[in-house]
Amino acid sequence: MPQITVDYSADLADGFDRPGFAKALHEATVEIAAARPPACKTRFRRTEDIVVGPDTEGHAHVHVHIALLAGRTDETKARLTQAALELLRTHLKPAAGLALHASAEVRDLDPSYAKYES
C-alpha cells in the first residue's frame, strides 16, 4: 500500500519523466496520506490506442489510479488527487498536436486486499 497505476498514451512516452513522477508522487503520498515510503509502489501501463468521443486522432491521456488502505478522509484523498495532477504538469511535456486528457483518482483498497513480502 499504496498501489499506484498510471495509464498513459504511447504518444507521451518520450516526454513523460516516469521515474521522476513516481518519486515525487511517492513523496506527496507520504506527506499527504501518511503512507510509509517503502510501501509506495507505482507501475506504468502504456496505452497504444485511445478514442475520445468520435475522434481517434489528436488525443492523449494520462490517468493516475491511487489505491490506499481505508481510513483517509475525503479531504485527504482530494488533496492527493490534486497533487498528482500538479505533478503531471511538471513531469509531462506537452505533445505537439495532441489534446491532453489528464485525470487522477484516489480510492480505498477493498477489505480483501492482502500482501506478503519476502
Rank of each mutant, 00 (worst) to 15 (best):
M1S: 13
M1Y: 08
Q3A: 11
Q3W: 09
Q3R: 13
I4C: 10
T5D: 01
T5H: 06
V6Y: 07
D7Q: 05
S9I: 03
A10P: 00
A10L: 07
A13M: 01
G15M: 00
G15K: 00
D17E: 07
P19L: 05
F21K: 05
K23F: 07
K23N: 09
A24G: 13
L25T: 09
A28P: 09
T29M: 07
T29W: 02
T29L: 10
T29G: 14
T29Q: 08
V30G: 10
V30I: 12
A34H: 11
A34C: 07
P37R: 03
P37I: 01
P38A: 07
P38G: 04
P38L: 09
A39H: 15
C40W: 13
C40D: 15
T42L: 15
T42R: 08
T42F: 11
R43I: 15
R43P: 03
R43Q: 11
F44R: 02
F44L: 03
T47F: 08
D49Q: 14
D49W: 08
I50S: 13
V52Y: 10
V52I: 12
P54I: 14
P54D: 14
D55Y: 05
D55W: 04
E57I: 10
G58D: 08
G58V: 05
G58P: 01
G58R: 10
G58E: 11
H59M: 01
A60N: 04
H61K: 03
H63L: 09
H63R: 02
V64M: 06
I66Q: 14
I66C: 13
A67K: 06
A67E: 06
L68T: 09
L69A: 03
G71R: 05
G71K: 06
R72W: 09
D74C: 08
D74E: 14
D74Y: 06
E75G: 14
K77I: 09
K77A: 14
A78W: 12
A78D: 15
R79F: 02
R79D: 09
L80H: 07
A83T: 12
A84D: 11
A84P: 11
A84R: 12
E86M: 13
E86S: 15
L87S: 15
L88H: 13
T90V: 13
T90D: 12
T90H: 10
T90M: 07
H91N: 11
H91L: 09
K93V: 08
P94G: 08
P94K: 01
A95Q: 14
A96D: 13
G97K: 03
L98I: 05
A99C: 01
A99M: 02
L100Y: 01
L100N: 00
H101L: 02
S103K: 00
S103V: 00
S103Y: 00
E105D: 03
R107Q: 02
R107G: 01
D110W: 02
D110S: 05
P111M: 04
S112G: 00
A114L: 01
A114D: 04
A114F: 01
Y116H: 07
E117Y: 10
E117A: 13
